[in-house]
């Protein structure tokens, strides 16, 4: 079957067998390998992408279920002009070690910040419940999300300059 998605602001289609998960479609058919396969059953969050503004496990969703919808992956965050504040802060603070969990953690955090611009540490912890990291212990990630949130709230944020309109925060639900 043919599945058509708006991925990172651009329309893309692929012909996939019906049992293809969104994760497999992104990684193997659209070659967007940013989202990772960690457990393939919804436990680890390495596959997190944003579908219509909500963070979901791409391994637990059929590509067909995402047909016609808007998908943002880690590849869609940075622009020619700059890194997303989360990427910038995560880089500077060393919030990631091996990095395998990183795309998922950043996408979950982005979805959180889109809805909750000023999250408390507890809200960040709750949001990241479904993102397992075996290396870091989460402390720098939680601080990093707070730092990125502060950066995004300040209007002169240089890292925000290049935010493409297609990726602007979705309407508050």
């Amino acid at each position: 079957m043919i599945v058509t998605l708006t991925v990172n602001g651009e329309l893309r289609s692929a012909s996939v067998p019906p049992e293809t998960t969104l994760l497999v479609m992104l990684r193997e058919h659209l070659h967007l390998t940013g989202a990772k396969t960690g457990c393939d059953v919804g436990d680890c969050g390495a596959c997190t992408v944003i579908v219509d503004g909500l963070a979901v496990n791409a391994c637990l969703m059929l590509a067909a279920q995402a047909d016609g919808r808007t998908v943002t992956t880690i590849e869609g965050l940075a622009t020619r002009e700059g890194l997303h504040p989360l990427q910038k802060v995560f880089e500077e603070t060393g919030a990631l070690q091996c990095g395998f969990c990183g795309p998922g953690v950043i996408m979950t955090s982005k979805a959180l910040l889109d809805h909750t611009p000023e999250p408390t540490p507890q809200e960040i912890r709750t949001a990241l419940t479904g993102n397992l990291c075996r290396c870091t212990g989460y402390v720098k990630m939680i601080e990093g999300v707070q730092e990125a949130a502060a950066m995004m709230r300040s209007p002169q944020s240089p890292a925000l300059a290049g935010q493409s309109p297609a990726l602007a925060a979705p309407e508050q639900k």
């Binding site: 880690i74 940075a78 890194l83 989360l86 990427q87 500077e92 919030a95 990631l96 990095g99 990183g102």
Partner: peptide, 23 residues
Amino acid sequence: LRAQRPDSRNHGLGLTRYIDDIA
């Protein structure tokens, strides 16, 4: 100073090529 990993930018961009990203 804050230590920065040389690979952390690629990690954050999803550009790090792990083995399963190679075909």
